[in-house]
Design a protein around this nucleic acid. Structure first.
Lengths: 189, 189
DNA sequence: TACTTAATTGACGTTTTGTTAATTAATTGA
DNA sequence: TCAATTAATTAACAAAACGTCAATTAAGTA
């Protein structure tokens, strides 16, 4: 499945793809929906040619898909280890999750307009929520509520946070999320 | 601002615009993202010509905007009256809100892919949440949490509900939302 | 240095866009 | 009911964007 790292990739390819991805971010940042994204504009911004684009991507959708994959693979790589021995309350997945997004604020803000990106981020949040349910032995009210309600509700908060420039610190947001669901055991004496 | 109803609109115009809007819904329902939406395909589905489309809309974005306006104007028209004398706990805005969406399930599901549509629906939910905060004199835990957290969290639940074919009844969903925020006073003796 | 592969150049046909002028068809009101 | 008005159709147009390709130049590798 994953690429064999022994077969090295031509540095020109790495550079070119990075430049197109940067150009993509750069254009979306200043446009969001206006001047529609064309391959020509991407090539101009990347200081490369249109033909080079088609050498690496089938179309703009393809570029998006590859970027979504990359960004989310990096994210899951960081938080999945926390699922195994998640007895440690010090570094819960949700905190690492939010911290990672925060560190890559611009990237996540720009990618968030993508439908598939959102859908998959929802999947990751659902994982986190269900793990938290299992490990914390909270047989409290939250268990009356279907998991999709908790997950979608959390996703709503995180979405708002990302789309509005992440005005809260990851730690504070995590606290607020816990507050909403009354799992904020820390706050109690 | 709003159109003067005394100046009647040619029935052909009404019919034509309705056919384009129906064609739009119809195409999105079966495609969602595949075969990309072109003016020609819209015209074919509407059994009209491309030139007629440009007689009424500047481009497909324009059609979307007009539809978003219409759909949300109808929704707000229905729930805003409930804001005035909302002492009656029998018909809270959130219930009417969800019921209206439920009645127009396909429409809302299809429109939901639109960014502006979602943003404005979030605005409406924020209104509902803030009204509910004021009128119900609940000085409980929810008031510790910023309004945007409650609103975005509710929006997340409603978004999930819409995007997944509204698997719960509006009433049940409203109950779940109340449960999450612990405002479910009805459930207590 | 020679070999290999990536990027550029310039060109091509295709699709989609947005507009227009001339014509046909439907609506309305006198 | 007929005449005036306005909507929809038709066919054509240039412009923009797409996706592909062969020949050439440039960069990386062994």
């Amino acid at each position: 499945m994953s690429k064999n790292k022994r077969e090295k990739v031509d540095p020109r390819v790495i550079r070119t793809k990075r430049m197109f991805k940067d150009a993509f971010i750069s254009l979306l940042q200043e446009n969001k929906d206006q001047n529609k994204l064309t391959v020509q504009r991407l090539a101009d911004r990347a200081e490369l040619t249109r033909a080079t684009f088609y050498l690496h991507y089938h179309d703009i959708e393809d570029l998006k898909e590859q970027m979504v994959d990359e960004v989310l693979e990096e994210l899951t790589k960081k938080i999945h280890p926390l699922f195994d021995e998640n007895q440690d309350i010090d570094d819960p997945p949700i905190d690492s999750f939010l911290a990672h997004i925060y560190e890559h604020g611009v990237l996540f803000n720009v990618m968030f307009e993508n439908n598939d990106f959102r859908k998959r981020l929802f999947g990751i949040i659902t994982e986190i929520v269900s793990i938290r349910r299992e490990t914390r032995k909270v047989k409290r009210h939250t268990n009356q509520v279907p998991i999709e309600i908790i997950a979608s509700s959390t996703f709503g908060i995180v979405s708002w946070w990302i789309e509005n420039g992440m005005p809260y610190s990851p730690r504070y947001l995590a606290e607020q999320i816990n507050l909403v669901f009354r799992n904020n055991t820390n706050a109690r004496p």
